[in-house]
């Protein structure tokens, strides 16, 4: 994986992100301002990085799951469970490291549950993870006893709103986790093996890949990412809100993966693409908030922008661009194969 190839892979996402940021700047004049005060940076750009943290964290795990041609609908609920677990542990006077470790463990357990259903029982991922998506929020409510379980432990709060080198801690978290995941999957053979089982699980098993163990690992990684996101979300508001923590975020995470240029059909994946996808989504959200439109328009505007991004990224429009680009000096009818080679080359 040479650097330019990686860059080329995420170029459409980077362009989309820049366009959205430019639009935001046009709408809100102070958008690009960044100030430094009280030991941390302030500004809308920082807000995007910070507010996008939960979705970015989820998107890391979701990318891996989707690469195996799976999907994990439970991550929002796992966030709620892990937020609740963290709050419950820290308020019953467990130490911060113990709380964090146990919470991450719970997230991994949730992921292993999903993975076992998919790998050993052969349940379709969308159904297998739907079980925890539905049940998870109930489990979280049992843990919090139906209330917002608030806490006031500086160490845990730091995870949500502390800052390191001027950057909010959640930003550091998703960037580091994203780089770590990329390194783990790309410097070992894991990335290749995951892609292989996503493209053709039968053929991969016949080639000797331990498909069940890999699926377990990938769902566990997704659970771990959800646990980190859950801790961040709870620490952010200094309380575990079982009803609302991570609500619908599984859909944003899936969207981030897709906007990041990954196929829901599994196979080739790019964690960097998904992370940029998460930032695109958050930039849209922040832009809408800054624009000051009546809230009734929020979802419509968001949907419209995402549709445009997806259309521009679709293979069909690539063919069209190539067609337009290649038209001068070519006979009618000739451009189609040319466009197709172009598209193949781009993969």
């Amino acid at each position: 994986m040479t650097m330019p190839a990686t860059l080329k892979r995420v170029l459409p996402q980077l362009i989309a992100l820049l366009v959205i940021l430019a639009l935001n700047t046009a709408i809100a004049p102070g958008f690009l301002d960044i100030a430094y005060a009280n030991g941390r940076l302030y500004g809308s750009l920082i807000d995007i990085l910070n507010r996008g943290a939960p979705v970015a964290l989820l998107a890391i795990g979701m990318t891996l799951v989707i690469a195996t041609r799976g999907i994990d609908l439970s991550v929002g609920a796992v966030m709620a469970i892990c937020g609740a677990v963290a709050a419950a542990l820290i308020t019953s006077d467990h130490s911060l490291p113990a709380t964090i470790l146990m919470t991450l463990g719970v997230g991994i357990l949730c992921g292993l549950w999903n993975g076992a259903l998919v790998a050993f029982l052969g349940i379709q991922p969308i159904i297998a993870t739907l079980i925890l998506m539905v049940a998870g929020r109930g489990i979280a409510q049992l843990i919090t006893e139906g209330v917002i379980l608030t806490f006031n432990v500086p160490g845990l709060i730091f995870v949500g709103s502390g800052s390191v080198f001027g950057l909010p801690f959640p930003v550091i978290l998703w960037v580091v986790l994203g780089i770590a995941a990329t390194l783990i999957f790309r410097t070992t053979a894991l990335g290749l093996l995951v892609e292989a089982i996503g493209i053709n699980r039968r053929a991969s098993a016949l080639a000797g890949i331990g498909t069940s163990a890999l699926l377990l690992a990938v769902y566990a990684a997704s659970g771990l990412c959800a646990a980190v996101a859950g801790i961040v979300a709870a620490a952010d508001i200094r309380g575990a809100d079982a009803n609302n923590a991570g609500l619908w975020l599984e859909l944003d995470a899936i969207l981030a993966v897709v906007v990041g240029g990954n196929s829901l059909m599994g196979g080739r994946f790019s964690i960097a693409g998904s992370l940029i996808g998460a930032m695109i989504i958050q930039s849209v959200n922040t832009g809408i908030l800054l624009a000051g439109f009546p809230p009734e328009f929020n979802l419509v505007i968001k949907a419209a922008i995402i549709v445009v991004i997806l259309v521009v990224q679709s293979p069909a429009s690539h063919t069209l661009f190539a067609f337009v680009k290649n038209r001068p000096g070519r006979t009618i009818g000739a451009p189609t194969p040319a466009a197709k080679t172009k598209e193949e080359a781009a993969r």
């Binding site: 102070g30 809308s44 952010d236 609302n244 609500l247 959200n285 922040t286 800054l290 000051g292 009546p294």
Partner: peptide, 26 residues
Amino acid sequence: VRSQTGDFTRTKGKEVMESFLKAENG
């Protein structure tokens, strides 16, 4: 001067307030 939905939740209340602060001169 500004009115946005925070979905009755703490998380969204915090996020939207952050954007209000940015939009209204810090």
